[in-house]
Design a protein around this nucleic acid. Structure first.
Length: 526
RNA sequence: GCCAGAGUAGCUCAGUGGUAGAGCAGGGGACUCAUAAGCCCUUGGUCGGCGGUUCAAAUCCGUCCUCUGGCACCA
């Protein structure tokens, strides 16, 4: 079996509530995963939760629970979110999975043996009140720290460091030789600019156990706990490893537990990842630290780090304190899952920041989903039922060229992960088919018995266009695509690109009666 | 402060030397299968300011203004 297309989201820190940004990242990654699957690639889509760290430790303590109990409860919330978003993820990694921890320890042991680590004092400003180190960025202009931190003292503690400096040049070379390694291109430029103009400092990768106990101990120094880098980031490779990915198993072989738990599985070739979908805030970790870590581990680099932007609400940063937030679950409950998936993918291209407005959401819902797509399917099937009792006439090719051309365009855009552009192209086809209804006026043809043959032709073109639209929409709107197939009386699922071939509807096929896909919400039901 | 990017119709944006474009919103019309949806037509801009190069500049150059992003241990 060949290597699968492997796509990931960032894993989310459990000590927080899911918000629009999380939901957005997962939806666009799901669209990418579904489109690759539809086009016949074996695909693996991974998401998950980051569960270690001091904040989780403290929150668990405050809640009177063990950290593991606390994480189990929160991980369930995040997994439920994945379900509510209709994600087609193939697995869900939790960094508290003992197998993940075993792989982390194998990696740490290997790098220690290779001389990638060293011990040194860590100097920092420490807030005892918040039990955290502060950075220069936390200083105010006059050099003092915000009173929220309480008394701030300068503290020195021993820690382990990861040597990064020696990796600077090849990483620059790699970015120059692989223009798609970081996307969009302006993010790549930022990373290159950073690498060219700064000297990489070594990375502090531990915290002393007395300060951070909820995490993975260094196998060669159990009084130290791995800090986030060699824990959370590694999930992308540890999940393949714990499921037997041969590349990961081979790189870590001698350092893994030799009890047979990590037997290679040649049928699951995942690493290297094809795309890491992340937010722009964690670009540097993924485009600088992570490749260097992988190189040290002896693993190939991912093919692409794709950084998306952030959402604002009404041109202002979303903030819990002001209540200026979009709750994705509430939107889905009010408008439906596919309406949510459509808006976030259509409104915002992957890269720039976006702005959520409730008015914009309602406008797209009505203009594009209800009046455009929904009404087209409804009027097409309504006429097929009214004039032909829902029985599909013989195939006819009048719209074949338009549809085939749109399919090719959408396919190319999906392969390039231009999701917004793909939706725009799909809607151009919807507009074209709506235009066709007016140009051919089947409702007039139906009044003249002599035009029965022409009416058959038009009705076939409409029904077949709707069928193919379902296939194109599947990656974005899986519920809706399924409903269109169901209304057409098709038992199949529109999850394969080959179904977008013109002429799939057979003469004599019995379609069902239409039900509005996206009921209008701005007027009382008639 | 330094580096990068952007400023074009009410809104979102395309357009990189040759008579200003799209979608949405706004206005008008004909139709009626359909979720009072759809279709056709249409109003609307001294292309951020100033100066320069050119027969010709939204497009190239200079300068100024405004905004955005980045400037390492941030989940």
């Amino acid at each position: 079996m060949s290597k699968r297309f492997y796509v990931t989201t960032a894993i989310d820190y459990v000590n927080g509530q899911p918000h629009l940004g999380h939901a957005y990242e997962k939806v666009i990654t799901d669209v990418i995963a579904r489109s690759h699957r539809a086009m016949g690639e074996e695909t693996f889509f991974l998401t998950g939760t980051d569960e270690h760290g001091q904040k989780v430790q403290q929150a668990a303590l405050a809640a009177g629970k063990t950290p593991q109990e606390y994480c189990d409860e929160l991980a369930a919330i995040w997994q439920a979110l994945a379900g509510r978003l209709g994600l087609s993820n193939d697995d869900f990694i939790r960094t508290t999975d003992p197998r993940h921890e075993a792989i982390i320890q194998a990696i740490l042991a290997k790098l220690e043996q290779n001389g990638d680590f060293y011990q040194a004092p860590y100097h920092g400003y420490y807030s005892a009140k918040e039990e955290t180190f502060l950075t220069e960025k936390d200083r105010r202009e006059d050099g003092t720290f915000d009173p929220m931190w309480g008394p701030v003292t300068e503290l020195v503690e021993e820690n382990y460091y990861f040597r990064m400096g020696r990796h600077q040049q090849w990483l620059i070379d790699h970015l120059e030789a692989n223009p798609d390694f970081v996307a969009p291109s302006y993010r790549r430029n930022e990373v290159l600019g950073f690498l060219r103009n700064n000297t990489l400092e070594d990375l502090c990768i531990t915290r002393p156990k007395e300060r951070l106990s909820w995490g993975i101990p260094l196998p060669f120094a159990p009084d130290y706990i791995t800090y986030v880098w060699f824990d959370a980031l590694v999930n992308y490779a540890s999940l393949p490893g714990l499921r037997g990915d041969p590349v990961v198993i081979e790189a870590l072989g001698p350092w893994l537990p030799q009890d047979g738990a990590f037997a290679p599985n040649p049928d699951l070739q995942l690493w290297p990842a094809d795309i890491h979908v992340i937010g722009k805030d964690i670009l540097k970790f993924h485009a600088v630290y992570w490749p260097i870590m992988l190189k040290a581990m002896g693993l190939p680099l991912p093919r692409q780090v794709l950084a998306h932007g952030w959402w604002q609400k009404d041109d202002e940063r979303m903030s819990k304190t002001t209540g200026n937030v979009v709750d994705p679950i509430a939107v889905i409950e009010e408008w439906g899952l596919d309406a949510f998936r459509y808006y976030v993918t259509r409104e915002l291209d992957i890269g720039p920041d976006g702005n959520w407005t409730d008015a914009g959401f309602a406008a797209r819902y009505h203009a594009e989903l209800a009046n455009g797509l929904g009404n087209l399917v409804n009027r097409s099937l309504s006429m097929l039922n009214r004039y032909r009792q829902g029985i599909v006439p013989p195939p006819h090719d009048e719209l074949r060229a338009d549809v085939t051309s749109a399919v090719a365009t959408v396919e190319g855009l999906l392969r390039g992960h231009s999701l917004q552009a793909a939706l725009i192209a799909i809607w151009r086809l919807i507009d074209r088919v709506n235009q066709y209804v007016d140009q051919t006026a089947p409702f007039k043809l139906a009044k003249d018995a002599a035009q029965a043959g022409r009416l058959d032709e038009v009705l076939y073109n409409l029904a077949e266009s709707c069928r193919i639209l379902a296939v194109l929409l599947w990656p974005f709107l899986p519920e809706t695509a399924g409903k269109i197939f169901a209304q057409l009386g098709l038992a199949d699922t529109p999850d394969r690109w080959e179904l977008s071939q013109w002429g799939g509807l057979a003469a004599g096929h019995q379609a069902n009666k239409p039900v509005p896909l996206f009921p209008r919400r701005d007027q009382p039901a008639a």
